[in-house]
Design a protein around this nucleic acid. Structure first.
Length: 279
DNA sequence: GAGTTTGAAACT
DNA sequence: CAGTTTCAAACTC
């Protein structure tokens, strides 16, 4: 499905491979007393399952060993209770939709939903322009609640508008370019709150020459092969741990296991550090 | 269809 | 609160 034809409603149905109507919580089927069950454990009180999170039963899903169906109502109810105990908002909708409904953005040629993500997204590499982003999925703009980095889904964003103009391939190329910028050069990248850095300024930053006397210090112009680890401090990229490699690793620990050289970023330069354990 | 990437949620 | 792990969906090849 291309971006132009994508809609939150369609995605919602597709990604759950949802039957026509899920049964709402209602039926009660008891489970034999004393019967132990995976769902009764604390660790099972999770809302990874979209049916569970939305307060529905699994029905005609592709899940394996599912206990979130009518047959196991008692167990399921316990699990709901345990989940609510640890998180009161676990079953609340993520998107606080506006009563005004959808709004036509004639300038961009799109229909934009008025609403706000209750917790905000935390995107780092998608620029909030791909379906990984919950705001994108909900077809809403990122808000001050979001803690995303390199956000391109704000009002007036060139990248966001490009998504709704021209052909799909060009749009995706544009998005990929934006994502690359986020990875390699978007130092101090925005999030929603801060103003987007102009392309001119970004280019200047990336073209900084290496004047460091310490051979282990490199300018950002050498960051072409550097990937930012999946996890870094909220303070932004400054001071973040970077890793050389062809792909982003899930954690620095994983990265280091693969003997990838790490570097430390300081403002416009990186300090390459080879941990002793790499030997 | 398999493997990779991504971000939310859970866990420590 | 920050770092790490787990998970499922999106995405790529």
């Amino acid at each position: 499905m291309d971006v132009a034809s994508w809609s939150p409603a369609a995605a919602s149905v597709n990604q759950r491979q949802q039957p026509q109507i899920k049964q709402q919580v209602a039926a009660t089927i008891s489970v034999a007393a004393g019967q132990s069950h995976p769902l009764t454990t604390a660790s099972s009180s999770v809302v990874y399952c979209e049916c569970f999170a939305s307060g529905m039963y699994c029905d005609e899903c592709n899940c394996v060993n599912c206990y979130k169906n009518v047959e196991y109502e008692a167990v399921r109810r316990d699990s709901v209770g345990a989940t609510l105990k640890s998180n009161l908002n676990a079953f609340r909708p993520k998107i606080n939709s506006s009563s005004h409904g959808a709004k036509d953005n004639k300038e961009a040629g799109e229909v934009l939903m008025l609403g706000k993500h209750s917790k905000g997204c935390h995107c780092k590499r998608s620029g909030c322009l791909r379906k990984y982003c919950e705001c994108f999925q909900a077809n809403i703009l990122c808000s001050e609640s979001c803690k995303c980095m390199g956000c391109k889904k704000f009002k007036g964003s060139e990248e966001r508008q490009a998504l709704f103009h021209g052909d799909y391939a060009n749009n995706m190329a544009y998005i990929q370019q934006a994502a690359n910028a986020t990875t390699t050069g978007a130092i101090g990248s925005s999030g929603y709150a801060s103003a987007p850095v102009s392309k001119k300024r970004k280019s200047q930053e990336l073209l900084l020459g290496s004047t460091a006397k310490d051979p282990s210090v490199h300018s950002l112009g050498h960051l072409q092969q550097v990937s930012v680890c999946g996890h870094y401090s909220k303070a932004g990229l400054e001071g973040a741990l970077l890793c050389f490699g062809s792909s982003i690793q899930r954690s620095c620990k994983d990265t280091c296991r693969q003997k990838i050289i790490c570097a430390y970023l300081s403002k416009n330069t990186v300090k390459v550090v080879i941990p002793e354990k790499f030997d």
